[in-house]
Write a protein that binds this DNA or RNA. Structure first.
Lengths: 112, 112
DNA sequence: CGTTCATATGAATATATTATCATATATTTA
DNA sequence: TAAATATATGATAATATATTCATATGAACG
């Protein structure tokens, strides 16, 4: 913190290194793979503004509905976003703060 | 902080949401794509133990040298790892703390 | 300087992934 | 209940990706 850089808590780092199974590594890779697609990242950023239905997301991204729905499913499966139905529409929102923190760290890396 | 969950600094989050260009989103996706492969994640975790040369990494991962070198190149290009030559060997190490913090966040997400 | 050891790289193959198209499902309303 | 609207999903084709094999580069050493 002294040098102005944000630091993740030291205990979390040591926890990180301790006994990670191969399965966990694969799970991790699977999670990051979800972030590793520009359409999905754009959807996540779109939802940073607040919850939206599919049609709104399609308009924001200027993409066809099927493509968006396919990616929404992947994000849902990874529990990065949550959905609820409201009449004909299905409303999507970010599932938790991890999404933002993970992306924030990525953004920091890029910006250096 | 009150609920026991680690939180990334609020200013970083607002910075995150503010005016992100399409190019930056693609860059972000590219970065996460690098984390989204189990071989590369395994290499990163291997380097958590300290710097290692290619042969050591191959032994640790039980993978053929060419496959490892190809992935090392991708990690190097993304500036997640650094390398230096020492005689015949090339020594690899983590480039900075972002790698650990990004992975720590991912791990937290999975563990819930 | 030719051989050995360590690493890198190009080409090829196998596999995974994404977007598109067509269609199915679900909800509302006339 | 038929039509309209919103979303989901299966199949396909185009593209991207990872691993393997063969070979190249580079350093050390006799």
């Amino acid at each position: 913190m002294t040098d102005g850089k944000k630091l993740y808590s030291r205990s979390a780092i040591s926890h990180l290194i301790a006994d990670v199974t191969e399965d966990e590594l694969c799970e991790l890779a699977e999670l990051f793979k979800v972030f590793g697609d520009s359409t999905r990242i754009r959807i996540l950023f779109d939802l940073f503004q607040g919850e939206k239905n599919v049609t709104e997301i399609c308009e924001d991204l200027q993409m066809n509905q099927s493509a968006v729905s396919h990616q929404l499913k992947i994000l849902r499966t990874s529990k990065l976003i949550a959905s609820r139905r409201e009449g004909k529409a299905v409303i999507y929102s970010l599932a938790d703060d991890h999404v933002k923190t993970i992306i924030a760290m990525g953004k920091e890396h890029i910006e250096e």
